[in-house]
Design a binder for these strands. Structure first.
Length: 849
RNA sequence: GCGGAAGUGGCGAAAUUGGCAGACGCGCUAGAUUCAGGAUCUAGUGGGGGCAACCUCUUGGGGGUUCAAAUCCCCCCUUCCGCACCA
């Protein structure tokens, strides 16, 4: 018995009130309404769609979740609710709406749980998918569950492998030995994008460098297009585009070589400040630069430099990258020749030079680069000024910091006296002409390291044969199945699974080994949006016709945390598949919306902080519609949402008032005709005006940036007005009833995307047999919405002093005359003539004395 | 350090071709109902002043443009986010 009573009533002190309140509560029987429609939708499956060339399509996608052991949290609910409002709205507008759901199901947490609880990652994942599916179903969000997919399904990952092979064929997947980011806790390597402030993005453990032979995807080949095409993404947040642009980090400069004295070797450097090239006083090279080892072989400096390189290697990324740390370095004893002026300068191995960027060596101009300046001061290296600020003389020995601004060239040979911006172009051209240097574009973006030394992931479909080398698994042999029935161990599971690891060479038939690393899970999620178009296709990764119909995604919704990772990778995949001729478009997501986080007590909701509100609790005690309403109303969707129990109560009250409003009016409207009679009295015209203005406002709010909060506020205003509408006297009845009927029909439709259960129930109670979602989105009747009177504010010297009621669009002279005739204005005028009168039609008059 | 976004009542927030600041909700106050608490309903609710009509101040701070500024410009402060020796 007690179990069926909503929890929110249990705070009641005694059983008497208990009952009374229960009765009152049932004035809005949300539980039975929601249960009823839940059952009907479960059976009718209104989200099921197929390609239909007669209807415009709309693909609304929410970022699919990782099936973690903890329940669905409010962040998920917010994400999916936003998507659902859009889906239902677009449906009502007549679009053929695709709204799929699936599981980003490979990944490390499954293995970590296995370590902890001794459950097989597969079992763990499947169980979680079951639990979360149940929770999602309980939310009655419109998903076409026929299209459900999980990236750990063989039927999915065989195509992930197939796509990998396409990359390999195009030369976009390759293996190289290279120092990589290694996370000891996760026992695997990480891509650059997955290292945040020197630490693993998942477990926050500091990463270390390890030299390993790994698989990479050549995303750098697409750097320019990934950057350029950001311009195509008109409906993406600027913030995300900026982050991607910064990550790609394009910079234009000059690469040139310096001869190494007494050898026939040269050292390449890259600079964006070629205007300062005459100011080189020394050169710096990354201590681990391979050329260094070669050049120093047999020299006395070799040991010292090697020791320094070792020391630098021991530093963590953070320490090495810290700008606080004094810059250290060591003279290699080598001398280089500056090709522009023939000066000989020393070469230092320095810890502030990164092997990863540019050529791993730099020209050092202490006068005009802060880092070089600091290093030069520490090592007593000369400083040579080659750019003077206009109207000022810089003295090298008195400088306290580098001068990095623009100025005029000095000590720069034939370029002296030029403005440095101009000199930059001229020096570059001259160096190209002389064959000393060339223009080069550098990117910060690195190739994507995709090997993972983990079990629960998509196997990389490659084979190693002692005789034939590295070979791809033939397409017809896909999928390379991840073996499930093998002993569980913390690392090296696939390596020690002999049935898996041992195979035969597809070329020569001899014994060979399989690749036993799996792919980064971000690969799985880089193409899932394509699979949704034809999730059961046995012949293709994605059916060309289906993809042509559904793609690109019209609206993608998710968290900002994927601004670079997932979104950049997906764009890359789409471009490669486009180049492969498999897709006609080259950007996957037309519009992106990033929702804000859900907070409680100013902090992110999390289990460890113990400040979570579960979806189950909300659904049980307040209902889905109230939960949706709160999430949508409490803050604009892109902003953070602070959870408030009282705010939830507020929405609950609103929905109950809506319900009671219909309870009152529906019985009165049964025989009312739909046609609005002519010559309505003022009050009825007013009701209609409010209705049509509300339709207009909500439509605009939904079209522009999903302003759900103000849309709901508009509904509340309408409802507040309607609550003051009285039952009509007999002579008023015909007009009032038909107006109220129009109001009730349209208000229910306005509610539908936000409060689907309530709306559907009201719709049915008004005598409809079909669903409200097929009833069309209401249209604003411009004539009905038009104001009959306007209040014009009268300002005197910019301050509101009076008001004027007029008919709309009255001409300016008339308004001015009326304003000047106003009693208060005449008082304030004190007989003076106005200096100026500004009239803004339908808004305001400002009289300046 | 560089780049970006933001700062409005007690709180969440509205208002942008510059035109009534604070819509809507929460909270609070008073009244109705009730033995009482809760719930519900009605009214009020930015600050200061005034019996009142009304006056006055107010959108992080300071300046400016304008008949008119939350909105545009300049300087400063704070918060959040991203990048951070990228040559």
């Amino acid at each position: 018995m007690v179990a069926t009573i909503p929890y929110r009533l249990k705070s009641c002190r005694n059983i008497c009130c208990f009952w009374r309140q229960l009765v009152e509560e049932q004035q809005y029987p949300f539980q039975s309404i929601e249960e009823k429609w839940h059952a009907i939708w479960q059976q009718k499956k209104p989200a099921r769609v197929t390609e239909d060339s007669d209807k415009p399509k709309y693909y609304c996608l929410v970022m699919f979740p990782y099936p973690s052991g903890s329940n669905l949290h409010m962040g998920h609910v917010r994400n999916y609710t936003i998507g659902d409002v859009i889906v239902r709205y677009k449906k009502m507008q007549g679009f053929n709406v695709l709204s799929p759901m699936g599981w980003d199901a490979f990944g490390l947490p499954a293995e970590n749980a296995a370590i902890k609880n001794n459950i097989h990652p597969n079992e763990y994942t499947r169980t979680n998918i079951g639990v979360m599916t149940k929770q999602l179903l309980a939310l009655d969000i419109l998903y076409d569950w026929n299209r459900e997919l999980a990236t750990c399904d063989e039927e999915y990952y065989r195509w992930t492998q197939w796509i990998f092979l396409k990359f390999y064929e195009r030369g976009l997947a390759y293996k190289k030995k290279h120092p990589v980011n290694w996370c000891e806790t996760c026992h695997t390597v990480l891509a650059n994008e997955q290292v945040i402030e020197g630490a693993c993005w998942r477990c926050k453990e500091l990463v270390v460098k390890k030299e390993l032979d790994q698989w990479y995807l050549k995303i750098t080949d697409y750097a320019e297009r990934l950057l350029q095409d950001l311009d195509k993404l008109k409906q993406w947040p600027e913030r995300v585009k900026t982050m991607q642009a910064n990550w790609i980090g394009r910079s234009e400069g000059i690469e040139f070589k310096l001869k190494i004295d007494n050898t026939d070797q040269e050292l390449s450097v890259f600079t964006t400040r070629i205007d300062t090239v005459f100011g080189i006083t020394y050169m710096s090279i990354a201590p681990e630069h391979p050329l260094l080892k070669e050049l120093l072989a047999g020299k006395p400096e070799a040991a010292k430099v090697k020791a320094f390189a070792e020391k630098v290697k021991m530093l963590s990324e953070i320490e090495r990258a810290s700008t606080e740390k004094p810059k250290e370095g060591i003279d290699t004893g080598l001398r280089l020749v500056n090709p522009v002026n023939g000066e000989k300068v020393p070469l230092y191995a320095a810890d502030y030079v990164l092997m990863e960027y540019g050529t791993g060596a730099i020209m050092a101009v202490p006068a005009h680069d802060q880092r070089d300046f600091e290093f030069a001061k520490n090592h007593n290296l000369p400083i040579k000024v080659v750019i003077q600020p206009e109207g000022q003389i810089l003295a090298a020995n008195r400088m306290t910091e580098a001068y990095v601004e623009d100025g005029v060239q000095v000590n720069s040979g034939q370029f002296d006296g030029m403005k440095n911006r101009e000199a930059m172009q001229k020096i570059a051209a001259w160096m190209e002409q002389e064959g000393i240097g060339k223009k080069v574009i550098n990117y910060r973006l690195r190739d994507w390291l995709i090997s993972r030394q983990r079990y629960w992931g998509c196997p990389i479909p490659m084979i190693y044969c002692d005789d034939c080398g590295i070979l791809p698994v033939p397409e017809k042999e896909l999928p390379v199945t991840l073996p499930l029935d093998i002993p569980y161990q913390p690392s090296g599971m696939l390596e020690s699974a002999r049935d898996f690891a041992e195979t035969t060479c597809p070329k020569c038939g001899k014994k060979a080994r399989r690749e036993t690393d799996t792919m980064d899970t971000f690969i799985d999620s880089s193409w899932y949006y394509l699979r949704y178009a034809s999730p059961r296709d046995q012949e293709h990764a994605f059916n060309p016709e289906a993809v042509k119909y559904w793609m690109p995604v019209d609206q993608y919704i998710g968290g900002i945390e994927h601004a670079i990772l997932h979104l950049l990778y997906s764009r890359f995949f789409t471009k490669v598949l486009h180049d492969q001729g498999l897709l006609e478009f080259d950007e996957p997501f037309k519009a992106l919306f990033t929702q804000g986080m859900v907070l409680k007590d100013g902090q992110v909701m999390s289990k460890s902080k113990g400040n979570t509100v579960s979806a189950d609790y909300m659904v049980e005690n307040y209902g889905i519609d109230t939960t949706r309403g709160f999430i949508l109303f409490a803050a604009p969707p892109e902003r953070e949402l602070e959870w408030s129990d009282q705010g939830v109560e507020g929405i609950f009250r609103f929905l109950r008032r809506v319900w009671l409003l219909y309870e009152r009016w529906i019985p009165l409207l049964t025989n009312t005709p739909n046609k609005i009679p002519d010559g309505l009295p003022e009050k009825d015209r007013e009701i209609r005006r409010k209705l049509h203005q509300t339709i207009q406002r909500i439509t605009v709010d939904l079209e522009n940036d999903f302003k759900f909060n103000t849309a709901i506020a508009a509904m509340m205003e309408l409802m507040n007005d309607l609550n003051t509408v009285k039952e009509p006297s007999p002579e008023e009845a015909a007009g009032r009833m038909s107006v109220m009927k129009e109001v009730c029909l349209n208000f229910a439709k306005l509610c539908a995307p936000f409060f689907p259960h309530l709306a559907e129930e009201l719709w049915q109670q008004m005598g409809h047999t079909g669903t409200i979602f097929a009833a069309g989105w209401p249209k604003c009747d411009a004539a009905g919405a038009a104001e009959e009177k306007v209040t014009i504010v009268i300002q005197v010297n910019g301050k509101v002093r009076s008001r004027l009621e007029t008919t709309p669009d009255m001409d300016k002279q008339k308004v001015e005359a009326k304003a000047l005739a106003d009693d208060r204005v005449r008082n304030l005028a004190e007989g003076r003539k106005p200096k100026k009168v500004i009239v803004i039609p339908n808004k305001l008059v400002n009289i300046v004395f």
